[in-house]
Amino acid sequence: MTSTRNTATIFCREFKSYFESPVAYVFLVVFLLLTGFMTFSVGSFFERSTADLGPFFFWHPWVYLLLVPAACMGLWAEERRTGTLELLLTMPITMTEAIIGKFLAAWAFISLAIILTFPIVVTTCHLGNPDLGVVFCGYLGSILLAGSYVATGMLTSSMTRSQVIGFVLALVLCLLMLLAGWEPVTGYFVKWAPAWVVNAVESVSFMPHYSSMQRGVIDLRDIGYYLSVIGLMLCATHVVLDNRKSA
């Protein structure tokens, strides 16, 4: 009971802190412009003349690749650099409460950005008759994917006092997780590796789980996959913070 209270307190401070500086607004504007540009120009949304959001969701993993590490790089690195970690960890709370509070705050912030893309859905509804079930499923998949990115960014942020290092590590780690399921990469494995290796590599990747949800399939295994990636990253963050030498 106290545990959720402490988590909520940390969540609120962290979520508000995005809006205490211009970061949040810059982030939201860039996110919306970038997804808009990718969807309409690169993804030829109108030229396809089908009422679905395929080109919109197609770019999410790549847009997140840049923006989510940027939104998460400060989560722990900044606390470590400025010494506020010493305040936070000498409060009567557990490490788990702090980690979950911060994770949920960053995830909620990214989710807010995702939800603010709703005009695209409205436009599509206006122009045609999209399958709203598929759209909902697409959003769900996208938010879960963002959660995995956030958890990854949180882990790399906890490893260092430098936000830049946190950013670069998160970008590389997320890219690896993305590319592991990309055709050129799996194609490379297909040539020589047994099928189960190909499957294993593919199934740790974000990509296959993401695309199946974009087709409107809610598979508990996909949801389970994202939740385990998040859980794993949060546990790793716990281990890293427990073993830090100093602030």
């Binding site: 401070r13 802190s17 205490e20 500086s21 400025t82 010494g83 506020t84 010493e86 305040l87 000498t90 409060m91 009567p92 709370i93 557990t94």
Partner: peptide, 20 residues
């Protein structure tokens, strides 16, 4: 947690959340 509840701590260099 109980021990921390009984303590107040002012760390070196007075860290605080700058944007708050």
């Amino acid at each position: 947690v109980s021990a921390k509840r009984a303590m107040g701590y002012l760390p070196e260099n007075a860290p605080a959340y700058d944007s708050m």
